[in-house]
Nucleic acid binder design. Sequence first.
DNA 1: TCATTTTTAATTGTATACAATTGAATTATA
DNA 2: TATAATTCAATTGTATACAATTAAAAATGA
Lengths: 143, 143
Amino acid sequence: MDNIDLLTIENQLCFPLYVCSKEIIKKYKPYLDKLGLTYTQYITMMVLWEEKEINVKSLGDKLYLDSGTLTPLLKKLENKQYIKRNKSSKDERKLIISITPKGEELKILAKDIPTSIGKCLNLTKKESVDLYKILYKILNKIN
Amino acid sequence: MDNIDLLTIENQLCFPLYVCSKEIIKKYKPYLDKLGLTYTQYITMMVLWEEKEINVKSLGDKLYLDSGTLTPLLKKLENKQYIKRNKSSKDERKLIISITPKGEELKILAKDIPTSIGKCLNLTKKESVDLYKILYKILNKIN
DNA sequence: TCATTTTTAATTGTATACAATTGAATTATA
DNA sequence: TATAATTCAATTGTATACAATTAAAAATGA
């Protein structure tokens, strides 16, 4: 096939990836609204449910986001009292993000979200595993 | 596994989808910069390379974007003289987007982009096909 | 026909994303 | 150790995204 014929929407791989990402994130909305979180805030809380404490740079490395996105987002989570923001005493450049008890409680309220989203994707076990592997293969290659 | 244990980044499918989408779009940037396009503007031009003429609603249906995103984006593409925006005479509610000769020329300059991006994803033929099928299965189910 | 409903694009407001820059703090090195 | 280079979070500016609303035009139906 001539290269120029590849320039159609239906021949793209990135386009359905981009659309799936957005459309799935929309499916989270009714569940996340109940918790007062956006999707980006939700994945941020997910890191904190595991780590309890992390600085902005490390958080950004995990989430593939930079301080330009995280700084205002973390201020919003602090306003909602789900996290605290404190300068590290060891390294004054670092801002330590830590989870609050109110932030911990959120996890219980969120516990059924992955299952609910999983159902509306309607994938077989094999498809889920294949998709997961391919996505992480791309991620490992791309950076 | 208990539902609550699913609330980790590594157990998510949407998260790597969302990250892959963003990271691949970043890979387009050096190529698209040469054309003066963003990724969203690029997929918009891709529709116009096929359709020549389309109204905002139909364009939005194809791209999964609404007028809130498309209206300002289309005004930028018009400023760059890649498209024209004209009210339909048959139905005054509709705005017809049409491609200009300068917009057509862009396609030639863009012709090697899909191949270049394909290389940096480094997927086997089977992986590409599997990924494509799974993504469209999700898209068909989700709407 | 004529009021009601629907469709369409634009607008408004909020929330990302990210490139580039800034300034403070730390680390590396001559 | 004094200077240069690096790291980190914040800021600035641009470009999406999308929910909700608005206003004009077209379609519907009593």
